[in-house]
């Protein structure tokens, strides 16, 4: 997985690319989230448009990101969830855990 990010109107937009399958992926996302939290940025959108697939470990990495942000008083939303990832979120019932949006713009406008 590669990871780029930017901050727009106080919201961190993380753009992973490739496959989220474990190993260094967890450390990369965790460290990047904490960099934003340390700077006071606690609203996060993860744009999944560039992600080919996510395995169970990758879902765990996303859950870890969600709980990290929530425990710091923030919010995390998913955007551009691909059909393959949506299917996994549905069968695992994680659709009830993540706030997913069709576009980054929709996710950005949904923050309270």
């Amino acid at each position: 997985m590669k990871l780029s990010d930017r901050v727009e109107n106080g919201v961190a937009i993380l753009e992973p690319a490739g496959k989220i399958m474990g190993g260094s992926d967890a450390t990369l996302l965790h460290e990047r989230l904490h960099e934003h939290i340390d700077k006071g940025v606690k609203k996060v959108v993860i744009d999944l448009s560039g992600v080919d697939w996510v395995n169970s470990t990758g879902l765990g990495i996303l859950i870890s990101g969600l709980t990290t942000i929530k425990s710091n008083g923030g919010q995390l939303k998913l955007a551009n969830v691909t059909e393959k990832i949506q299917s996994l979120l549905t069968i695992t019932k994680l659709v009830t855990v993540f706030d997913s949006h069709d576009t980054v713009e929709s996710a950005l406008s949904s923050f309270e």
């Binding site: 169970s56 470990t57 765990g60 859950i63 870890s64 069968i91 695992t92 009830t96 855990v97």
Partner: peptide, 15 residues
């Protein structure tokens, strides 16, 4: 168990 980071691998593989 929904917010657990692990434990859904076998379920997904069987699916």
């Amino acid at each position: 168990n929904l917010l657990k980071e692990v434990g859904r691998g076998i379920f997904i593989i069987r699916s």
